[in-house]
Every structure is written in C-alpha cells, then in structure tokens.
Design a binder for these strands. Structure first.
Lengths: 238, 238
DNA sequence: CAAACCATAGTTGTATGATAACATGGCAAC
DNA sequence: GTTGCCATGTTATCATACAACTATGGTTTG
C-alpha cells in the first residue's frame, strides 16, 4: 500500500481512486478476510488525501460488502464480497423470449405485491391508486397519458407493499415494459380493450381497498394475463 | 439476563440512512431521471446532518450508478437505461426491516418458481434435485456441506423454470439473504430442525415430480415460512 | 449587433481541526 | 479475583474554510 495518488490525474474522484486501490489490495490477496485495515488517518497520509476522502471510499466499500467497520475498533476485510448490484443487458432484452421471461418474472412479483398491498395499504396509497385510475379514465387508450397513468397505478400498488426492494425491481421492469410498448407503437386499441383494462384495474383496487389479499392476488393475475395478450405475448399460465 | 445488542439491531450509519432515503425518493418517482438533486448543503439541512454525511451517501449512490455528479454543477439522477436492476446495500441490510423485505422478495419469487418448475421440469432437473437432497441427508444440519446442498436444491428448482432472468435474479437474492444470515451469526440447529427441513424439501420435490403446480407452490410456501422462523423472522404472511 | 471577455455567485471537491461515541487494556481499590 | 475507573486509540460526526469548476449576466470589443 505504498501507492501515492497523483493530483494531476483529473479523472474520477479521489474517493473512487482510493476505493479501487483498497479493492485491488483485497483482490490481490495482500489484504485477507478478517484483516484490519490501517486507520483512516494512516490511509489518508499514505494516499496523500484528507481523511474525508478516505471515509467516502470506506463508505462505498462498506455498502458493497467488501469491508465492515465498527466505531472504536476499526475497519476489517469482509469474508464474502460479491457484487451487490444486479444488471440486465439492455440489448438482450430486445429479443422476444428474453422479454417474455422478464414479463414472467414481473408477474410473479407483482401478483404477490398486490397481496402485500392489500394487507398494508394506507389511505394515501388508495388515494394514489384512485387518482391514477381517474387519469386513465380520461385518457385515450394507448396514449402516452394513458401509459403514464397505468404506470402510476402499478407504482402506487407496489409502493403500498412497504418493500423497497420490490419497489425498485418492479419499477425497473415497468419502465422496460413501457419502453417496449412505446417502441412497438402499434397500440391501435379499441374501446373494448380500454374498458376491459379499466375493469381489471378496478377489481384490483377494490380488493386492495377491502384488504383481501387473495382477491388482490387473483385480480392482479387476471390483469397481467390480459395485459400479456394485449401486448402480444401468449401466456397460458403466468 | 443482560442481552448484548445484535448487529441487526444496531443503528446503521447516518450516511446509510440518507442514501436509502434518497434512493427511495428515486424509486417512488419523486425524483425522475435527469432531475437535479438539491445541493449538498440543502440536503444536509433537510436531513439534519452535516454535509460530510451527505457526501458519503452521495458517493455510494454514485458508485451504484443511481446518480452522477459534476463539480460546479450538481448531482443528477442517472438515466434509467443504465441504472441497475437491483442493488442490495450490505450496510442497509443490517436493518431488520430491510432484511425482512429481502426475504419477502425471495419468497415471492421462489414460490412462483416452484410452480413453474412443476410445469416445465425435465428428468435431468428432477435428478439434480434428488442428488441435492441426498447430499443434504448425509450432511450434519447447519454444516457447510448442508448449506451447499440446500443452495444446490433451490438452484435446481429455479433452473427448471426455464427462465434465465428468474434464475439470475433469484440466485442473486438468495445469495444476499444467505450472506446476511451468516453475517448475523451462526445458530445451532437441532436434529428436529434437520428432519423438518428435509421433510419440507421432500414435499416440494414430490409436487414438482408430480407436475402439480399448486402443490409445489404451497409446499415451497410452507418451507419458506419454516425457514423464516428458523432464521428468527416472525413472519405470519410471507 | 454579435461575439468574446470578464466578474460574480453558486456548487461540488477537498482539507483540516474539533468533538462525541465506542472499544480496549492497564491499574488501583475493594 | 473482581470491579470500577482512567488513559489511549479508533471510528462517527460536525463545522468551517478553501480550491476548482460551472453557469449567468453584464461589459467590452470587433
């Protein structure tokens, strides 16, 4: 750990450089799991930066699970260090079967999310769902406003689960679904479709309002099956 | 009886709270891609912390790809296209409710995965599940070999769904859950627990073998409820 | 008039010192 | 031997200051 950082290097932030440097020490085995890192002050002087920069780097490594620290003791190398982020190749999603798989995954989560929402929703949640449905009601089927309101409804449902991880993932997927639908652009929906979709949404809202988890689950399942057909995916049993 | 504070119960760092809070604003759509975040000073005053803490939180969000910042301009919410699907912050996972949320997410996925597996499994899938169960049978409860075999069984189940995203996602989440459990400290298990767990697994395998989606779903749900109790989560309705 | 220039304020990046919270070991008192 | 106290070291947080950079508006200049 005798690397001195050059200030002339105007690329990333200093904390990023420090973090990668420590990360490299761990990866190369010069710092083993359980080892105690030098003190923040020591790291600051060896890297030639302020202790503040070192702290930002440590905070980042800690959030990644590479190290853990305790007040009054020090920072230590963690035993397991896997990447805490999951990414999906954006290009691969353009293929039909990949999209179908993602849609399936979304369905599994969203159905359960509806059940949780029925158990945990607040009045504010219900209000958000209602206003989203109202917006959908006044917008023409398939329009941008309609899609936006639709997204808003599903977002309100998953927000009512009080589960931030579900929220994070479902919102990601919803964005992708929306992009894909917009890209397809052939939404020549009939009034029939509009009323059907609205009816499905209303059933979901009713079940969540009543606090009936099973009914909410089933209603969401029906809605997703219908949505899959309307999008062009033929799903027998999602 | 004096009880030492568990790692899970100990309050996380302020920067973690701030980071989660901002993350939530983004997830809930109150901050949209391209939006500029409040200044560090403003965030510091609104959260009631020093600007230093805000900077640590921002450094982490930046490393996760959720925001980007430029000196002299400000910090902005990153575009959805290159944002990660899911980020699991190890530091945040020390909070009990975050762990519960992640466990919930895993449950929602795994239950549905069991149903898909029952419909799509091949003989090779069944063989993989069987050998995993056999390995679990000969290993002592809670040992490394037992944990490995357990993971192998669940991996075989999700592999049988023929959905690569579900596989990728579920394995990712399961590993994070497992890490968190291991980090919280080892719990000693009785032979009673071992036989109970094995029985649950056998029922899952039977249902999948029979091709009964509903039974597989229920068996997996029972297994996860049991696992939640064994881990110490009091979950009545996962 | 338009373009280049400059001045100024606002924002992020970094440095520094100080205080509080916590852990650990030594040492005295009992 | 055990308990309680104190000194020391470390992380966590705060507060302030300065440097680097950007945006913006006004001013000068061609």
């Amino acid at each position: 750990m005798t690397l001195k950082l050059d200030k002339v290097n105007r690329g990333p932030h200093l904390s990023t450089l420090v973090a990668s440097s420590i990360s490299r020490e761990i990866a190369q085995g010069r710092l083993n799991p359980g080892d105690q890192l030098p003190t923040e002050q020591a790291l600051a002087t060896t890297f030639g930066v302020s202790r503040n920069v070192v702290r930002e780097a440590i905070a980042r490594l800690r959030s990644e699970g590479r190290i853990w620290s305790q007040q009054g003791r020090g920072a230590f190398v963690a035993d397991v260090a896997n990447s805490p982020v999951l990414t999906i190749d954006h290009d691969a999603l353009q293929q039909a079967d990949a999209f179908k798989s993602l849609f399936e995954l979304r369905g599994a989560l969203e159905v359960k999310a509806a059940a949780f929402a029925a158990q945990r929703r607040t009045d504010a949640d219900l209000q958000a769902m209602k206003s989203a449905l109202a917006a959908m009601n006044t917008a023409p089927y398939g329009s941008v406003a309609w899609l936006k309101a639709d997204l808003e409804f599903h977002r309100a449902v998953v927000a009512a689960t009080r589960n931030s991880y579900m929220e994070q993932f479902l919102i990601f997927v919803s964005e992708r679904v929306r992009e894909s639908i917009l890209a397809a652009g052939n939404q020549q929906g009939s009034d029939d479709m509009a009323s059907t979709t609205l009816g499905e949404h209303n059933r979901i809202l009713d079940a969540i309002t009543a606090g009936d988890a099973n009914a909410a689950q089933e209603a969401m399942q029906l809605h997703l099956n219908g949505a899959a057909q309307r999008v062009g995916l033929h799903v027998n049993d999602l």
